[in-house]
């Protein structure tokens, strides 16, 4: 998958007031900038996600700041309290200016 492609997983349905898990995996090399290329001895430049924001119906739920210490192709799990049907959106960016978004729907039953 291309760098920045993400998978966002939420339950399709939830009860009102239920706390659901929001899980995501994003394709990214997450180079910390401290590793050396074993062949050339040159530092591999940093290339990692810096920030991920979680929205529900365009209201900001959580902000996650991260560095190169998070594993390649980062997995993140966090919770969300669902009071109404709506759209979960994650928006994330890396240190080279890449910016992506991903959405998923939850309906209250």
């Amino acid at each position: 998958m291309a760098i920045g492609a993400g998978i966002l997983r939420v339950p399709k349905e939830a009860k009102k007031g239920e706390i659901v898990k929001v899980q995501m995996v994003i394709t990214h090399p997450m180079e910390p900038g401290t590793r050396k290329d074993p062949q050339t001895g040159q530092l591999i430049p940093a290339y990692h996600l810096t920030k991920l924001e979680l929205f529900f119906n365009d209201k900001l739920v959580s902000v996650i700041d991260m560095g190169g210490g998070v594993s390649a192709n980062p997995f993140i799990g966090i919770t969300l309290k669902v009071e109404e049907s709506g759209t979960v959106k994650i928006s994330y960016e890396d240190n080279k200016g890449g910016k992506w978004e991903k959405t998923a729907e939850i309906s209250v039953v």
Partner: peptide, 26 residues
């Protein structure tokens, strides 16, 4: 003991419902 000890930080709001965070680290 990592070269850069800071891994990540998370800001919570009441909309999270509870305190939970999972990830994978180096």
């Amino acid at each position: 003991n990592n070269p850069s000890p800071w891994i990540a930080d998370v800001k919570f709001t009441p909309m999270n419902g509870k305190v939970y965070f999972a990830t994978r680290i180096k």
